[in-house]
């Protein structure tokens, strides 16, 4: 393979559809009660990678995701949509990592996949909305970063030209490789699963998934080694443990408050014409409007 694209993707709790049992009584988040989904902007990132792969001969896409065992779903989903393979970074020692510690772990995984040409990720994950992990990973890998990417304008083996979405306009930028790209939600939506790939890869599993399912796939996997989704632990990454988890996270949570609304004494009105008339008249008389 001559052109390698690494996509960083994350499985996130669907914070957009938070139900009543999402919070435990002690005020902490009940992650188990939230459905786990592919972080939306990471799907935009995958699509961008697939488009680049479509225009460059012999390009390959590898997914890197960090999370619990079940986060392997992200890799399988990406493979169904056109990625070539993926790696799950999983270890209890990562628990409690803030964005700095997370970017350290991700950067070590990307290092293991050198040589690469592009690292692509969603701008931000919906469970934190910080948009920090992309730039922090780029810094650790000493890569230039093109953030808020909306589209590929031109791409070849030497350089890529991208359109960036800013608050009040756009910017067209060009960079050589290697480089890091983060992708904005206004970028094209990800293509659906490919039926042929689903057939071929439906049994792709990590070691832990195989153990959980308690099935013997030895014969199948000997015949089809591409069905293996590798897991990488702290040891595999040769990581400095002090820089991971809580000890590697400079930000500490001092306290978490449940949201308590400041109550006002509000006046309740029906939508009858007379009550609305009285309200509008009061607003005019008190010079709030008019």
């Amino acid at each position: 393979m001559s052109f390698r694209i690494i996509v960083l993707a994350k499985q996130v709790p669907d914070t957009r559809n938070v139900g009543k049992d999402a919070m435990k009584e002690d005020g902490t988040v009940n992650r188990a009660a939230l459905p786990a989904i592919f972080n939306p902007e990471d799907l935009n990132a995958l699509e961008l990678a697939l488009r680049i792969k479509d225009s460059i001969k012999d390009a390959e896409i590898q997914i890197v995701t960090m999370g619990p065992f079940r986060a392997a779903e992200i890799i399988r989903e990406s493979i169904f949509r056109g990625a070539d393979g993926g790696f799950l970074i999983t270890d209890r020692k990562f628990a409690g990592s803030d964005t700095l510690a997370t970017s350290y772990a991700l950067s070590l995984a990307v290092e293991k996949l050198r040589p690469f040409d592009l690292v692509i990720a969603g701008r931000q994950a919906i469970d934190g909305d910080t948009a920090q992990v992309g730039p922090q990973t780029a810094e650790k890998l000493n890569l230039p970063q093109i953030t808020y990417t909306e589209d590929v304008i031109a791409v070849d083996e030497k350089s890529i030209t991208l359109k960036r979405r800013l608050e009040r306009g756009i910017e067209i930028v060009k960079t050589s490789y290697p480089a890091m790209i983060t992708v904005h939600s206004s970028a094209p939506e990800c293509r659906p699963r490919n039926v042929k790939r689903m057939m071929k890869f439906k049994h792709a599993r990590t070691v832990h998934e195989l153990q959980d399912e308690n099935k013997d796939y030895t014969e199948l996997r000997n015949r089809c080694p591409y069905l293996d989704i590798p897991e990488w632990t702290v040891a595999d990454l040769n990581a400095d443990e002090v820089r991971l988890g809580l000890s590697g996270s400079p930000t500490k949570v001092k306290k978490i408050d449940n949201v308590v609304l400041a109550h006002k004494d509000s006046v309740s009105l029906t939508n009858s014409e007379s009550e609305i008339e009285a309200l509008m008249k009061e607003l005019i008389d008190t010079h709030i409007v008019g």
Binding site: P250, K255, D257, N258
Partner: peptide
């Protein structure tokens, strides 16, 4: 976390 909590962070 989806606005369900207010966090105070320190470094």
């Amino acid at each position: 976390f989806g606005g369900n909590i207010i966090a105070t962070i320190v470094n």
